[in-house]
Amino acid sequence: MDHLTKLEEMLDRANTEIKNGNYESASNILEKIIDIDSNFGKAYNHLAYLYEVKFKEYEKGETLYKLCLEKSPMYPAVYYNYSILLSTLGKHTELKELLDTALTIPGVVKATVFNEYAIMYEQQGKLDEAIEYFKKCALDTLDKNVLNRAKESIDRCKLKKELL
């Protein structure tokens, strides 16, 4: 078994631990992957997710997402995960830069990126821009659930506009 295959198998094990709610165990496996190969960017993404979502240590999560981007800039998952953290923290300038880059990465689901732009604009009270991006999301997806969610989001933004 080659080096990369071993790391991918360890990553799969960590994912299983995360799914089963064994966050400490997952964290240990991910730390071990990084000890073996500090350039294996996917491990940083998964560890960042744990720090952000499960441990609520946002700064540590942000640092780890940045390391993932540095080591594996073509890994689509980091763009989704990191964008949610930046949105949570209200870091809209960094978020827009990340989303602009995400649209250039092969394998990134553009509808998901458009949705993140829309949420960002809605959070900023830029409702017309939010509606435009929710429309882009809707038109770019083949998933009926994503389409329905985008339509509901557009309706929500229109309601907010009526209140202004």
Results as ranks from 00 to 15, higher is better:
79 Y>G: 09
131 I>T: 06
131 I>E: 03
44 Y>V: 02
116 E>K: 15
125 G>P: 03
16 T>H: 03
57 E>D: 09
145 N>I: 04
154 I>R: 02
35 D>L: 11
51 Y>K: 13
32 K>C: 00
102 A>R: 04
121 Y>V: 05
149 R>A: 10
130 A>Q: 07
106 P>L: 13
80 Y>Q: 11
142 L>S: 11
40 F>D: 06
51 Y>L: 05
87 S>L: 13
84 I>K: 15
137 C>V: 04
21 G>C: 00
152 E>T: 03
20 N>K: 11
116 E>W: 00
160 K>F: 07
147 L>T: 13
150 A>M: 13
154 I>S: 05
21 G>R: 01
148 N>G: 14
22 N>P: 01
42 K>H: 09
40 F>M: 03
110 K>S: 14
67 L>C: 10
81 N>T: 06
42 K>L: 09
91 K>C: 09
142 L>K: 12
135 K>N: 05
97 E>R: 15
55 F>Q: 03
82 Y>Q: 07
149 R>L: 13
17 E>V: 05
83 S>C: 11
87 S>H: 07
86 L>F: 03
19 K>I: 00
151 K>Q: 14
163 L>H: 04
138 A>W: 00
73 P>W: 01
83 S>M: 09
89 L>F: 01
133 Y>C: 11
30 L>V: 05
164 L>H: 04
60 K>A: 03
43 A>P: 12
119 I>N: 14
36 I>A: 01
15 N>E: 11
78 V>M: 11
71 K>G: 14
160 K>H: 07
153 S>Y: 00
97 E>F: 15
140 D>M: 01
88 T>D: 12
15 N>C: 10
90 G>L: 01
148 N>L: 13
42 K>W: 13
80 Y>H: 06
119 I>C: 13
33 I>H: 08
132 E>D: 08
70 E>F: 05
33 I>E: 09
43 A>I: 05
73 P>K: 11
120 M>L: 14
32 K>E: 07
33 I>D: 06
117 Y>F: 10
102 A>G: 04
55 F>I: 04
18 I>G: 13
153 S>Q: 05
48 A>C: 13
157 C>N: 07
124 Q>S: 08
104 T>M: 15
